[in-house]
Design a protein around this nucleic acid. Structure first.
Lengths: 133, 133, 133, 133
DNA sequence: TTTT
DNA sequence: TTTT
């Protein structure tokens, strides 16, 4: 028995990516990506809705994203969804859903650098014994 | 300029789907789907991790899902991600990320009913002026 | 029982799209899209391989593609695969595999026109009683 | 600049998979998968159309597919499309489009063996200097 | 809360 | 917080 957990987004990077390191020394790069959806609000009125994604890249992919991903760029991101939960100060559960990237590519025609696409190496999207933040 | 917001999951339905109606009378069906990921925790040890998705279907798709989706079934769900936010009792923002379904299909060989797959009609994944819960 | 037949490509349009009409009067737009793959040929040598796709859009989508798709543009195409076969002059079967588009979007930042993305209407990807060429 | 070439199918395996070896000793497993599409032929009449895919798995993935893929099983296949061409006996070009698999999973609840899903290792979907048939 |  |  098997399952599939796949997310694919194309959107604009909202912030400069940030690379940090876990206590165990694994690089983690995070950045946000905005997708926009236009829809017809019943009465023929056009509306636009922005959806923000938190993207997380680990290990080698983290280092590569830190090179070519930049605020304002159009990117393709493929990965899986992961929802983390923790207890808030009030004892209530909080949730954050993120995209754990396996592929990140620039879709801009003039890349900032030569490398404009990167794919995770096997196991590269996990940091098993070692949490980022 | 354009963007893509696509999620594809294959997993097991965790609860009986629940169909409700918005104040404006639109049907909304929600159910959860579990995907499982096996990975190698560095030391050759196999681990398994379950990821739960909240799936939301609107309008005609909601009615169809309410027929053939059932607890324990294996389903394919395609849709887009949407994160809702609201203010918690402590004034802090809370977030919930859901899959707004556009296609839901049963992957079990013996469907409970004749219809075992449904796709959204255009605009069928939104309820513009009318929030569910 | 259910199945999935999905293709997603991002690539450059190789020719100006061509819109024709079936005998029954349905518009059909066809164009080709190139994707490029870089890979490591064993010995550390980098190779590049181009894959060409034949994209077919029907009906309203055909008309929209005919507007904003243009040679050289970067596009996202989502659809299903269909392989047609016919008998060659020597009596041997010939095959052609095409992408029947359901969504086509421009990924260039400066669109030629205002509309730069289009999605099929339901049933819009078929012309049941009426073959194109 | 970057591109995407992705196919995702869910369907039934039409034949027992066949594993062969290239002259260079690389294992290659091929099998066919049928997807079914139901559509409304204008006049309310329901039609069904079967689409057959040729799936090719290389190297380690080939060996794994040879274990758990079997005729009649429901499988999920993810990969890229590749069209090969050659000259027919009449000097005319012939084409064959195949899915080069990167992931193959069984969707049947009772797998024939313990392993019921496999993903390509990096570079595992190519055999650069060495053609299969 | 599913499934193996 | 992006982009149009």
């Amino acid at each position: 028995m098997v399952s599939l957990n796949k997310v694919m987004i194309i959107g604009n990077v909202g912030v400069e990516p940030e690379m940090r390191f876990t206590p165990g020394g694994h690089p983690v790069t995070t950045f946000s990506v905005a997708t926009n959806r236009r829809y017809d609000a019943g009465d023929g009125e056009k509306k636009e809705e922005t959806e923000w994604f938190s993207v997380v890249a680990w290990n080698k992919l983290a280092e590569q994203c830190n090179q070519f991903v930049a605020k304002g760029r159009l990117v393709y991101v493929e990965g899986r969804l992961r929802t983390r939960s923790w207890d808030g100060p009030d004892g209530q559960k909080r949730y954050k859903t993120e995209v754990i990237a396996s592929t990140v590519s620039s879709l801009d025609r003039a890349p900032a650098s030569s490398g404009d696409s990167a794919t995770v190496e096997p196991g590269g999207d996990i940091s098993p014994d070692d949490l980022p933040f």
